[in-house]
Design a protein around this nucleic acid. Sequence first.
DNA 1: TACCCGATGACAGTCACTGACATCAGCTGC
DNA 2: GCAGCTGATGTCAGTGACTGTCATCGGGTA
Lengths: 188, 188
Amino acid sequence: MSRWEPDARGRLERAALELYLERGFERTSVAEIAERAGLTERTFFRHYTDKREVLFAGSSALQELLVDTVARAPGPATPMEAVAAALQAAAAVLQERREHARRRHAVITANAELQERELIKLAALAAGLADALRQRGVDDASASLAAEAGIAVFKVAFRRWTEQAGEKDLSEFIGESFAGLKAVTAGT
Amino acid sequence: MSRWEPDARGRLERAALELYLERGFERTSVAEIAERAGLTERTFFRHYTDKREVLFAGSSALQELLVDTVARAPGPATPMEAVAAALQAAAAVLQERREHARRRHAVITANAELQERELIKLAALAAGLADALRQRGVDDASASLAAEAGIAVFKVAFRRWTEQAGEKDLSEFIGESFAGLKAVTAGT
DNA sequence: TACCCGATGACAGTCACTGACATCAGCTGC
DNA sequence: GCAGCTGATGTCAGTGACTGTCATCGGGTA
């Protein structure tokens, strides 16, 4: 048997989410998270750069999924089609873990600092999408615009998904939002 | 004559921008800003909620300008036309103070925490735009999408404006970006 | 003249985050 | 099977952002 309990990161992430739900982000100290995970505060900061980051561990995997999906989109796909495919792929992942996604999102919407972190993660996703589009030969400005517009669609769709009373899939909200964006930009 | 030097906020804002430019955001302490402004650290925090906020004092004025411009757009204007008018109004203000805008932006792009704050301010602008559109009778989803898309256009245009070698006006970049968005969303 | 108010200062405290050094189970080379 | 290295963790002493509380006092007000 090994010297320490396994999966320190997993324990920290679960402890953090639990505590943020129980008492709120601000009223939870890093020492408390570490204690619940059976570790020390110092070790927390070896795994996560700050108190917020522990909620965003999965975002790099999402980023890879988006970028890969754009890269693998069929050759003739337009930039927005490639972005749409990427967002649908991401939606499928989130739909699978919808309870976790909603709990996490509830914590984030309750705290401005966490919203800031979420926004910069979304900006990073946009930058990754834009890069992937450029790799496909899309010109610089169009790549940025398609990526930013795609993230805008995602933000709106995700919010509607979490606020709905029913159980409609995230992918449907994304489809509707893309259609809505098309309609609204047509009238300029 | 009054008991204290006037314009404490202005002195703090100028001192902060200077120091952030001279030594970087992270390597500047609030005590140093306050000292250069002839005040104490405690007083700094009476004027600004945190060390970042001192760079964003003007954002509420920008928000009011955007919201007012949408509210006053001609009745038959489409949502995107109203948003475009608002962004052009904001662009004119930034163009006027372009040296200040660029210095400030240089500080922000050099630091992730400041970028986070900028993003949440932009998100607030989007929320304000969306509200103003709803007041005009635009349906909920379209209002959010037009607002978010408008902010996406603004982000791209602003970045191109600051990165350009020449002296082209921000309003031109915004016009081009709106056209680019229209082109890119048409191909879905 | 007495009083209040609002902007500031003084000071102590909490907590996020960092740097430096210590510990020690398990693997590696011999 | 032993010496030594490694990597994840612990310990401890900071620094600096931010907060609560009380004191100060020039200027306006009754």
